[in-house]
Design a protein around this nucleic acid. Sequence first.
DNA 1: TATGAATAATAATTCAAA
DNA 2: TTTGAATTATTATTCATA
Lengths: 67, 67
Amino acid sequence: MNKSDRHAVILRLVREREIATQDELAQALHELGYEVVQTTVSRDITELGLVKVRGAGGRLVYAPAAG
Amino acid sequence: MNKSDRHAVILRLVREREIATQDELAQALHELGYEVVQTTVSRDITELGLVKVRGAGGRLVYAPAAG
DNA sequence: TATGAATAATAATTCAAA
DNA sequence: TTTGAATTATTATTCATA
């Protein structure tokens, strides 16, 4: 539940940190009390339209579609 | 060999078509006479700094880092 | 240095289930 | 409708080889 809350948190997280994997994002959510697993994070990413962009050092990290 | 040629072709391909997977890109290269496999395409993508963006219908497709 | 085969890591989907 | 376990698909890396 609370998908829309979680979505907002995800957007904040990917702006604040460089998150490279869905497991990493799931773990970050856990720390904030959202107990979700990779499968769900994958769906959230699709629903939010996130993409992977090149972060520092060319590493692929998640980001909102529009900057 | 001909890596820089191939890189140029890859850039052209991802601009012309919506290419969703590395296998798909490898296959497109085959049709143009570049016999490479997914492993190599993966490296090319890193070297070119390509990212996956949302294409039509929210599908993730390869694109140059800068538009 | 560039490449591929095999493998590991990551992400998306299917198939229940609540 | 949302979720997760299991599975499948996709991508990155390791380990040779030329």
